[in-house]
């Protein structure tokens, strides 16, 4: 069965993501930026579903939109943003920064228009029922070592965050 209305949902979700991204980098109030970022992350989770990646979509919602963004909002509450909101929001090099990003964008566009042919379309498989199972067996099979390293990284991050945020060690 062919997917229904894929282009419509793709453009809807990518429009949501881009508007959310623009709001993230332009809002004065950091809380508004965080809320816009949550919208972007949820739209991206829906795009993952369009790409038949339900496990990554679930991880995105639970970990990113649920975990990391709550951490951000807590830190925004801990630091005082009143003073920052009254000040200039963009630094002195903003013109150079936008020019550099524009040059990078031109590079991307050149690569993508020149290399259009290297992604031929294949007969894509339809939704597989065992995506989570397949990801799990890869994580605990072929990527076992990387998985253990990732757990070590998280342990280091926990200790690092506590040491950084603690007043007196």
């Amino acid at each position: 069965m062919a997917p229904v209305a894929t282009p419509f949902f793709f453009y809807l979700l990518s429009g949501t993501m881009l508007i959310g991204g623009i709001l993230v980098i332009t809002r004065k109030n950091a809380v508004h930026s965080a809320l816009a970022l949550i919208v972007t992350l949820l739209a991206q989770a829906a795009i993952y579903l369009m790409l038949y990646a339900p496990f990554v979509a679930g991880v995105q919602i639970i970990l990113y939109a649920g975990g990391i963004m709550v951490l951000f909002l807590f830190v925004i509450m801990l630091v005082s943003i009143e003073r920052t909101m009254k000040e200039r929001q963009f630094n002195k090099q903003w013109l150079v920064g936008i020019a550099a990003a524009g040059a990078l964008g031109g590079l991307f566009m050149a690569v993508y228009t020149k290399g259009k042919g290297i992604f031929p379309e294949h007969a894509l498989p339809t939704a597989e029922a065992q995506n989570t199972q397949a990801v799990g067996s890869l994580l605990y099979g072929q990527y076992m070592f990387a998985f253990e390293i990732a757990s070590l990284l998280l342990l280091v991050a926990i200790i690092g965050a506590v040491v950084m945020a603690k007043k007196r060690i």
């Binding site: 980098i25 920064g97 550099a100 990003a101």
Partner: peptide
């Protein structure tokens, strides 16, 4: 968008 944010925001 992320690059612009990193380079221009204070």
């Amino acid at each position: 968008l992320g690059v612009i944010g990193v380079l221009t925001r204070r």
